[in-house]
Computed example of a mutant assay.
Amino acid sequence: MRILGIETSCDETGVAIYDKKLGLLVNKLYSQVKLHANYGGVVPELASRNHILKTLPLIQAALTQANMQGSDLNGIAYTAGPGLVGALMVGATIGRALAYSLQIPAIAVHHMEGHLLTPMLEINPPKFPFVALLISGSHTQLISVTSIGRYKIIGDSLDDAVGEAFDKIAKLLGLDYPGGARLARLAQKGVPGRYIFPRPMTNKPGLEFSFSGLKTFVAKTILTNKNDLQTRSDIARAFEDAIVETLMIKCRRALDLTGFNRLVIAGGVSANKSLRYHLNKMLQQRGGKIFFARPELCTDNGAMIAYTGMIRFKNDNKSDLSILVRPHWTLEELSILD
């Protein structure tokens, strides 16, 4: 059984083929970073147009690399949400039309479920139950996961997502878009402890996140200090430390609340080396385990859509002929697979 996955939720065009027995066969990705860099962020209309140009060539390239024809596929999975509505429509339309032409099922996949299940593609996948920390440019969520589809959001961001905060501070530090990874590299040159920033919402109980106040605090620090490389590095280090410690505190609380001893981190920010190191250290001290995907599968990609599509396909979660996308779609609305 082979599933083609199509990811077009934002500014990455991803196509992959997943085989039930052989695993991930092909994973193709086209990044629009250069296209949006001059604007300092994603321009939705440009993203949609670029998906139109790139999706079909990537599908053909994936089939060629796998030495397959479209007729060798058993299903087409596509991201149906959440995401940018125009970008989602491109992948949904192509996926649905291709499935119809091949007379095979189409599967509408939840983008964040794809991220959540990405560590399942690794050699040592997590077993249920576990706490998942989903951290990306648009999400910061703690989720209690007891099986596929049994997702309970136990912590959420009240304002900026952690990835969004990274990018905004990076821009204030003069770093090019996308700035999150560049800020992390700059932070490696920083002196720890020169600046100490707040750990937001950690002085009271609960699992909610808020990064807007931290962002304002850091912005004022940038404006009132020298603009030399070392100062910017020290500020980047202090900001990253504040984010990492805040996420650690909240994850510790979530594990205590659920009683689980496994933690999954997923989404673009889960590639952050400092976060991985400190969360891994915390789980080792607790006698638990942490799970995450290889860095290239942390950002948006077709592999996570193909794999999740396979899981949903096996449980008869197929879409009808209508082309529907859901820009706003919570994980708790997904059907449960037993």
Rank of each mutant, 00 (worst) to 15 (best):
I311F: 00
A92V: 07
V244C: 14
A254P: 08
P295Y: 11
P129G: 10
P295R: 12
T8C: 11
L24I: 06
Q230N: 10
F166R: 07
Q285Y: 00
L133S: 11
H139Q: 14
T79N: 11
G174A: 12
L25A: 12
G155M: 06
E208R: 08
N301S: 07
V85I: 15
G287C: 09
P119M: 10
I135F: 00
R150F: 01
S157H: 00
S136T: 14
L279I: 15
A306L: 08
L247V: 13
R286Q: 14
N272W: 06
V244P: 09
Y100T: 09
L337M: 09
T79D: 01
R182T: 11
A47W: 05
A184W: 02
C298L: 08
D19V: 05
I265L: 08
G70E: 02
K220D: 10
D228N: 15
K21F: 09
P126R: 05
L117T: 10
M112A: 04
L175V: 01
F166T: 04
Y177E: 01
N315Y: 10
I3F: 01
M1V: 14
L73R: 11
K168H: 07
P327N: 11
Y195E: 01
R182C: 02
G179I: 12
A165F: 05
Y177L: 02
M201H: 02
P200S: 05
A66C: 04
G5V: 03
L173S: 05
S270N: 14
P125L: 10
T330E: 13
S212A: 12
L214W: 02
R294P: 07
A62Q: 02
A80Q: 02
L229P: 01
L134T: 05
Q285M: 10
T140W: 02
K281L: 14
Q32W: 12
Y39S: 13
R262E: 10
Y195L: 12
G75S: 10
F130T: 05
V26T: 14
N225Y: 04
S31G: 09
N317M: 15
R312V: 00
